[in-house]
Amino acid sequence: MKRIVGALGGLIVFALLWEGYKAVGNPEGTAVLGVKVLPRADDLSMPHLWTVAQRLGKPELTGGRPVWQVVFDACLFTLGVTAVGFVVGTAIGFVLATLMSRFRVVERGLLPYVVLSQTVPLVALAPLVAGWSGALSFGPYPWQDWMTVAVIAAYLAFFPVAVGLLRGLQSPTAAGVELMRSYAAGWWRTYGKLRLPAALPFLFPALRLAGAAAVVGAVVGEISTGTRGGIGRLVIEYSREATSDPAKVYTAMLGAAVLGLVVAGVVSLLELPLMRHRRRVEVNVV
């Protein structure tokens, strides 16, 4: 409940800031010593929020479907790709973290590369994935464009899970590990009864990061591979019309933002049933 109020409050603050800046900001932007420090506040760069809202209801092209429907469909498409990327990435992160916590050697050998993997620029990665995946197929099903995008989303999403879960799996105290040892519990049982539950408080923030990363990966992946049908592509298409129809590109961006919020919301719903004890314990943080 508090969270919903908080989220609504955040939206209102954002709207106030946006419209407030429009009201007081220099329409030509503010420059200090020739360097632009504040953006233009004219209707072309920053349309009124209600103009954006109105634009959602009007048809995309004369006689076409209303913009909100187009944006909604595009968001659904991207949401699907994001979900696939998120699930695959999380699974890979899980396996990697588990292997790294099980074998010291694997951790020492693999962790640097896991970190390194995230420094590869996405733009360089996308054509690469598109290139070698073109030859792949699953039996009778050929490789599809959206799969390339999902691979990129997964590539970004696995990282926080692998690193966060690894820390969590290594978090139990010596006392806990010794207790399991005294019960003659093997590695798997120690994993299931001690390490995994102890890792949950580390896993959930990591999953939220992974959700956000998957959205970014899907949107950027769509753009850089030129995949049609998603919100990333829509942002690019609409931005071509930015001069004639500035509100339109903001509708697509709004869609992308809502998509991000939906993913974040779904991920945080996951943790409700699993972190019951957190809510029962009263802590006073000053």
Binding site: A175, G176, E178, S182, A184, K193, P197, A198, H277
Partner: peptide
């Protein structure tokens, strides 16, 4: 063979249980 049980200096309880 689990011939013993221990209760150590730190309680070592699992906080999520």
């Amino acid at each position: 063979d689990q011939e013993y049980g221990i209760a150590f200096q730190q309680a070592g309880l699992f906080e999520w249980r």
